[in-house]
Write a protein that binds this DNA or RNA. Structure first.
Length: 972
DNA sequence: GCAAGGACGTA
DNA sequence: GTACGTCCTTGCA
């Protein structure tokens, strides 16, 4: 008998560091170790031939949790950092791989893999068999026997070394300086810092080996310790005899573990293709599939990927991700399967975290250097820390840092106050409150922690905190963002910490209003007493940490890894930098325009009062409706759902044309001017930052259903362009002297994406040939030649094209074109006859959203519609239209995100300098040195036009228009 | 002081 | 017909 025992857990850990990281192509699931593990298993079967071929085989894993050694010595393995995040999901997958190879996978609660291995090895050797242990763990070396019936084999590949290495008597002697039977005595003396086995302080391997070789074994040595000549060494041994004895117990492997499977049950089986290939295919290990296909003389093509492990099925069933998680977990449990470990893991993490009570009294204040050092050390030990910054305001480009809270484990959090003011502070400005560290000293201490990419910093809205920290000389490397995790998983349905905490932790948290009040007499956080601030701030860090646990665990089972890791997380620092740069706005231009608009609006207002025969508030739709449809008696008015007269611009335009009355047009013009004045020319200068003299918008990365960004305070994504007055406002956005603005925008990106997704050959050809797409549509629909096409025909086709993207309805199209509903219906019918593929696409999305509650972008972003099956027909129709639009708008949003993420590295690699300042959905604005514009533009275009590659090969070309000028209007 | 509704700026 | 954010008025607390 020859038994081959693979130390599975040790292999995974060593392979993690030795092998390059590898992820599953379609969803980014980390699988490097799984791949290495499969390679190792199949190489063993190949390489161990003839005399070395095993007759029996098993893979042994550690059972997570405590063992008898922790009772013996509570600190055993206490310094082990948690497994890296991308390793965790691979644990269950290696067990599954073992089973797929038809090999018994063994683990046992309360026992380490080493003990199980020792027990099997001991039994087989006792009965005269041979044992090969696949491991290089020094703790197993004690099992090697003088006749080498028990040997070890190291298989973790290392560069420049043979792929396999036998470990026998000679290797043990090199490592420990003794024979295998004395290894535990040596280890008892020298200890092991990795496993936290104490040993005798001050005695290393060399000394230990020397002592054991002199005295024979540990007990003899301890008994005769008095004889040792060196006084220091003698005293250490006498003082630490007990510690040495405990250490020996810790390192001694138990050879009497209750084995779950008898040795006979480990007899080798042929590799079963029916379990192996579905697993390998689900992992997307093409190379291994090919090689094993040849080796096993089986046809891999005959097997499908195992759905239990496969990446995001495009049409999985469920109405929201959380419900889907639970449903899947329940289904697997009911079937008695353990094949969905990641799902079960997520559910159990949620339960575990939710069960930890909140205790705001347990939070501590960091008032001194030593306290802060202690917390930083804890963060380093833990490998991660949740951080929340407290500031004097909500604008992270101007607010002051007031404090930092840290959480290293759920429930364990502290607050570092830095800028709190004392109680007497008034407008003359008192001093800093007592009991706070010096800001500069604190920053110096925290800086290495934040900059160290190996310590994970967890934020809730990284972009806000990183923006503040950056201004204090604290760059952040290595971060996660609970808010973005939530967005990648659930879209914008939870968008504040309170919402997330209430939903996932069933805990609302302290409302900020309780501390600073609201309205006129609102305080800043700097005025909050430190004790109150501690409860609030530390709770936020604690909540962030808890949410991170819950949400991060869902990423793999809910197939959101790729969206989070390739689109959300990398974009956040890009946006942070764009926000920090801001854009220059010309105050004078805006001031001049404000004056001009005010005059013209006043004139229109006077005219309106004249025409109405009375003074009224033109800004009040209510008063206006009563004048138009009451006093003046215009007909054709419609009511809004609250019973008021509708006075929208479309309706007023129509009224002006039909009644040839001047008032409605005056109102429309007045509204246009006051809108421009109020929202732009008056408001924008207020946003110019005193420190930078520029306007800094704030992008919301997690608020839009389709994956777009939104912009606020101020919104720089709705700067006017359509009217002449509007463009004057746009021209106030300028470059610095000596620089230029570049505007680069995708041409017709949504129609191109529609052509790709719906696979419409005629549209694809038109884009390929660079035709005018609206004219082409008109020509196809109305049989009008392209040459000399009337502009009105093209306008109608354009409206239809846009209508298609928005989920067309006859009602909407008739409104847009001002034609009867029936005529609009005919247009749509004609369109579908000409492009039946579009109708198929629309039907498919409608069916998909009803069946599964979401639709997807081409990159796999899911857009949820919880009320897709509403009883309300209007609501249902709305969801249908939105589900048609969402994959188109969302795919375009994903593409420009990819372009933004790649832009800065691409510029740097090309040795070009250009600052990306703004994003407006299909447009990027840069600021560049005047003489660099011509060289930068081609690179910008190249990055944008290829942004979908290689994840998605679009079947239509993307086209980007880019221009440089001194202001935004001329650059566009 | 705050929320809802209406209107309108953008893609 | 899709997706947003902001300003203003109105009505209620």
């Amino acid at each position: 008998m020859h038994l081959l025992l693979v130390d599975g857990s040790a292999y995974i850990f060593r392979a993690y560091h030795a092998l390059p990281p590898l992820t599953r192509k379609s969803d980014g699931l980390p699988v490097g170790c799984v791949s290495g593990f499969c390679n190792m298993l199949f190489k063993l079967t190949e390489d161990l031939k003839g005399d070395d071929a095993p007759t029996h085989m098993a893979v042994i894993f550690d059972f997570s949790g405590e063992t008898f050694r922790n009772e013996l010595y509570p600190d055993y393995k206490a310094h082990r950092p948690p497994a890296p995040e991308d390793l965790v999901p691979q644990f269950p997958l290696t067990r599954a791989a073992t089973k797929a190879f038809g090999i018994p996978s063994i683990e046992l609660e309360g026992w380490e893999a080493d003990d199980i291995i020792a027990t099997y090895a001991c039994r087989v050797a006792r009965d005269g068999g041979r044992v090969t242990i696949v491991s290089s763990d020094k703790d197993l070396m004690q099992l090697i026997d003088p006749e080498e019936r028990v040997r070890m084999l190291d298989t973790v590949p290392r560069p420049g070394q043979p792929p396999m290495r036998w470990i026998g008597l000679e290797e043990v002697r090199k490592k420990f300086g003794v024979t295998p039977d004395k290894v535990i005595d040596v280890q008892a003396l020298c200890g092991d810092s990795v496993d936290n086995v104490p040993g005798v302080p001050g005695i290393g391997v060399k000394t230990a080996a020397e002592l054991i070789n002199t005295y024979g074994d540990l007990e003899t040595l301890l008994a005769r310790a008095e004889e040792i000549k060196q006084p220091a060494r003698r005293q250490k041994l006498i003082d630490n005899a007990e510690l040495a004895r405990v250490s020996k117990q810790l390192v001694t492997l138990n050879q009497d573990v209750p084995l779950p499977l008898e040795v006979d049950a480990l007899a080798r089986q042929p590799i079963p293709p029916a379990s192996l290939f579905p697993f390998l295919k689900a992992m997307e290990f093409q190379t291994i599939v090919r090689r094993l296909g040849g080796l096993l003389d089986a046809d891999p093509d005959a097997f499908e990927a195992d759905p239990a492990y496969a990446a995001a099925p495009a049409n999985a069933v469920g109405f929201d991700n959380a419900a889907r998680t639970e449903a899947r977990a329940a289904r697997f449990e009911a079937q008695g399967r353990d094949e969905a470990p990641a799902v079960l893991h997520a559910a159990s993490v949620h339960q575990r975290i939710k069960a930890i009570p909140f205790n705001t009294d347990a939070y501590t204040v960091i008032a001194e250097r030593a306290d802060l050092e202690k917390w930083i050390e804890a963060a380093r030990t833990e490998g991660r820390v949740a951080i929340d910054t407290e500031t004097s305001g909500l604008d992270n480009q101007s607010a002051d840092l007031v404090g930092l809270s840290l959480c290293v484990r759920p429930g364990e959090a502290a607050y570092l106050p830095l800028g709190h003011l004392d109680g007497d502070s008034d407008m003359f400005g008192g001093g800093l409150a007592e009991g706070q560290m010096d800001m500069r000293q604190a920053i110096e201490l925290v800086q290495p922690l934040l900059a160290d990419p190996s310590i994970l910093k967890i934020f809730h809205n990284y972009k806000f905190d990183a923006g503040v920290l950056m201004r204090y000389g604290l760059p952040v490397n290595g971060y996660d963002d609970a808010l973005l995790l939530s967005y990648a998983l659930d879209g914008p349905q939870f968008n504040t910490m309170t919402e997330l905490s209430t939903h996932w932790l069933e805990h609302a948290g302290i409302p900020i209003k309780d501390l600073i009040g609201s309205g006129r007499n609102q305080l800043t956080f700097a005025q909050v007493p430190i004790a109150d601030a501690t409860r609030y701030a530390a709770e936020d860090a604690d909540t962030t940490m808890r949410l991170w646990h819950v949400l991060k665990a869902r990423l793999v089972p809910e197939n959101a890894v790729t969206i989070y890791e390739t689109l959300e997380r990398p974009l956040a620092p890009v946006l942070a930098r764009m926000e920090a740069r801001g854009i220059s706005v010309d105050r004078q231009i805006l001031a001049r325009l404000s004056g001009e608009f005010a005059q013209r609006a006043a004139a229109l207002e006077a005219e309106a009062h004249e025409l109405a025969g009375e003074r009224f508030n033109l800004g009040s739709p209510k008063q206006l409706g009563e004048i138009l449809f009451g006093k003046l008696g215009f007909s054709g008015g419609t009511k809004t759902k609250s019973g008021q007269w509708s006075t929208g611009a479309g309706l007023l335009e129509e009224l002006a044309a039909r009644e040839s009355a001047p008032l409605p047009k005056v109102i429309v013009d007045w509204r246009g001017l006051t809108k421009l004045k109020g929202t732009y020319t008056d408001a924008l200068p207020e946003y110019i930052n005193a420190r930078t003299n520029r306007v800094h918008t704030s992008y919301n990365q997690s608020s839009v259903l389709t994956g777009r960004l939104s912009s606020n305070e101020p919104n720089l994504q709705n700067i006017p362009i359509r009217s002449e007055d509007g463009r004057k406002i746009r021209s106030a956005f300028v470059s610095e002297p000596g620089k230029l603005l570049i505007s680069a925008d995708y041409s017709q990106i949504e129609l191109r994406i529609l052509a790709h997704i719906a696979d419409i050959q005629a549209l694809k050809d038109a884009f390929e040939e660079g035709l005018d797409i609206h004219a082409m549509t008109a020509s196809e629909m109305f049989h009008v030649p392209l040459e000399g096409m009337p502009s009105d025909v093209r306008r109608r086709a354009k409206a239809i094209n846009f209508g298609i993207i928005y989920g067309i309805s006859a009602f909407g199209l008739s409104n847009q074109l001002g034609i009867p509903r029936s005529e609009a219906g005919d247009y749509i019918k004609t369109y579908f006859e000409r492009f039946p593929g579009i109708r198929d696409y629309m039907e498919h999305q409608k069916q998909a959203v009803k069946a599964q509650g979401f639709v997807q972008t081409v990159f796999g972003r899911r857009i949820q519609f919880p009320n897709a099956n509403s009883r309300n027909p209007a609501e249902r129709s709305f969801v249908e239209r939105a589900s048609i639009n969402a994959p188109i708008q969302g795919s375009a949003a994903d593409i420009i995100r990819r372009a933004m993420i790649r832009m800065e590295p691409a510029l740097e690699q090309a040795g070009l300098a250009a600052d990306m300042l703004l994003q407006v959905h299909d447009e990027l604005i840069f600021e560049v040195a005047e003489d660099a514009a011509d060289t930068v533009i081609p690179l910008i275009r190249q990055v944008m036009e290829n942004a979908a590659d290689p994840a998605v090969r679009l079947s239509v070309p993307l086209q980007v228009e880019a221009h440089a000028a001194r202001n935004w209007d001329e650059a566009h």
